[in-house]
Every structure is written in C-alpha cells, then in structure tokens.
C-alpha cells in the first residue's frame, strides 16, 4: 500500500503530499509522523501541499490533527504551498486550519521554523531580538 514519504532535514521533518489522501493513507501518515517525531526528536514539521488541487474538510481536519499531535510532541507544524484556488475555497467554506501555521513555500516555511527556534532557544544576538522601537519614522 502507498505511503507518504517523510524526509528528515536536520531537526525538521518534511512531508510532501503528492497523491490524493484517502482515510487509510491519512491515518497512516499521522502515525508515521508521530513515530518519526519521537524517533528523531524533530522540532518542526513542514507539510507541502503544492500538489493538492482540492483541500476538503477532511484534509483540513487531518492537517489540524497533525498539528495538534506535533504540538504535544513539541514540534511546530507549518503547512506550505497552498494554492490560491484552494485558499479561496477554504475561506468560502468557512474552514480555518485551526492551530496550523502557514507559509508560501518550503523555503519560507523553513525560515519561519528557524526563527521560532531562535526565539525560543538562542538569544545570542541581542540586536536581533530587541523589539523594534517605533523610531522617528512617523
């Protein structure tokens, strides 16, 4: 039976969904991801849905569930590459991906996860963290 491959990139897991997700496949993906997060100690999960033409309420709920599971295992989930048509449909249906962070592409998703990690762990560079004062710009 088909499986959605889960790739490891440092402490981040990358999942690229290229096929239609059926119930079985989705459940298996959830299990695989949970296993891999624990096994690798990953801190971030990136789910790439560039190839998906349709995101229905089922897939929407699955993404939310994955995000919730990852959260429990201390990993942040970012959904990347949602197409405009998909986003419009989701809004029209009134679905919001609860608890899921999004980015335009994998690169920006990686950056987003990297920034969060930096915020959490390594306040090395004081300048980078300092909240920006509203300087005399206005």
């Amino acid at each position: 039976m088909d499986r959605v491959p889960v790739l490891t990139l440092g402490d981040i897991l990358l999942v690229s969904i290229q096929i239609d997700l059926e119930d079985q496949l989705a459940v298996r993906l959830q299990e695989d991801l949970a296993d891999r997060i624990v096994a690798t100690g990953a801190h971030g999960v990136i789910i790439d849905i560039t190839a998906l033409d349709i995101v229905d309420s089922f897939i929407g709920r699955m993404l939310s569930t994955i995000a919730a599971i990852s959260k429990v295992l201390d990993a942040e989930t970012v959904v990347v590459g949602m197409r405009p048509a998909v986003a419009i449909t989701l809004v029209e249906l009134g679905l919001s991906l609860q608890g899921v962070r999004t980015a335009l592409n994998v690169e920006l998703g990686l950056r987003l996860l990297g920034r969060n990690r930096a915020d959490r762990l390594e306040p090395v560079d004081a300048d980078a963290i300092e909240p920006l004062e509203p300087t005399a710009a206005t």
């Binding site: 970012v78 959904v79 990347v80 949602m82 197409r83 405009p84 986003a87 419009i88 989701l90 809004v91 029209e92 919001s96 991906l97 962070r101 999004t102 980015a103 335009l104 920006l108 998703g109 987003l112």
Partner: peptide, 12 residues
C-alpha cells in the same frame, strides 16, 4: 476580509 483570510491560509 476573505482575501485577507485566504492570504493568511497561504502563509502571507
């Protein structure tokens, strides 16, 4: 509002 929501879903 819908545009803003859709953009947010896409990560912008």
């Amino acid at each position: 509002l819908k545009t803003v929501m859709a953009a947010r879903l896409m990560g912008a």
